[in-house]
Simulated assay, not measured.
Amino acid sequence: MYVAMRLFVLSDIHTDFEENESWLGQLSKTDFLNDALILAGDISDSISRIERCFEQVCKRFEVVFFVPGNHDLWVNRCGSETSLKKFGLLKSMCRQYGIQISRSHIGNTEIIPLLGWYDYSFGSLSPELERAWMDFRNCRWPSELRTTSDVCEYFLSQNSLEKSSAGNVVTFSHFVPRIDLMPHYIPSRHRVVYPVLGSLRIDEQLRELGSSLHVYGHSHVNRDLRLDGVRYVNNAQGYPSETWIDKRLQCVVENL
């Protein structure tokens, strides 16, 4: 009997926290064996914890898709020379576990990862944010990527933008594709981080691809809404201290 493949989404699981790694380990080992998972970045800066996560999700889902988040590319504790070399290592690990890091068809749907970073298209970097934002200390880039905008442009240039022939297109990124996805109730004191949330170029790319559903992470503000004809979903696990987040898997497509 045919069983429809569902698509689940999850991001920002931060398994550096034992509570989060335990939550992942407690997911059913039988309920999702015919399903797909988009894992939209920020597992851990630890290679061993990322590998344990890959082992866990590959046991539970038939297909897993992944893009790295900023935490995944931190190098201060992992020994990688640069964040780009760590990115290469993560891609090798994905190939080892059969995790999809390039565009792939499931039935009449094409699922397309979009790499990215932030480029200050959501606002200017303040001295306060420059002092506090951990990426500036924990990522290390090669000399040719001199600015944060260079980093963003490098990752965006890696994305395949060939128009899809599939009936449905689902895209996903770690970084936020447009700032109006952030709800109006966010206090002004927390909006200081908006410049490092993402890039408008990600939204331009997903629309060029004809995406009808885009999954993202990074903000730790879960959303499911439609803007200008595209459905945007963020389903972050977040930190244990973020008790207001409903920590769950979210099914976004019932039948791929």
Rank of each mutant, 00 (worst) to 15 (best):
V63P: 10
L209E: 03
I43N: 01
P187E: 00
D228A: 10
E130R: 13
S173M: 06
H190R: 10
V67W: 00
N255C: 13
S241K: 13
S44N: 04
S124D: 14
L156E: 00
G167N: 15
S92I: 12
V253Q: 13
T171D: 04
S44D: 15
F61N: 01
N255Y: 15
G41N: 01
T109G: 08
T15L: 06
L249S: 04
W133H: 11
K59E: 12
E153Q: 05
G167E: 10
M134H: 13
D16A: 07
I202C: 06
R226N: 15
E204M: 15
F155M: 00
E18S: 11
L145Y: 06
M93P: 14
N159W: 00
G116N: 08
F66L: 08
R248N: 11
P68F: 05
S121H: 09
V252N: 08
Q26F: 11
C58R: 15
D135H: 07
L73W: 04
S124G: 11
P183D: 00
T82Q: 04
S212G: 13
E153V: 00
G98K: 05
C251W: 04
R248F: 08
E144V: 15
D180A: 05
D203F: 14
R248L: 08
Q96K: 14
L115C: 06
M5T: 14
I38N: 02
K247L: 07
H220F: 01
S124L: 10
L24C: 05
V193F: 12
T109V: 10
C53P: 10
R77T: 15
L256N: 11
F122I: 10
A236D: 04
P183T: 01
R146P: 06
E21Q: 12
K59I: 09
Q26T: 15
V233Q: 01
V151P: 07
L37P: 02
E18W: 14
G238R: 06
G123F: 03
K85Y: 09
E153C: 01
N138F: 13
D224Q: 04
G69W: 03
G88D: 10
C53V: 10
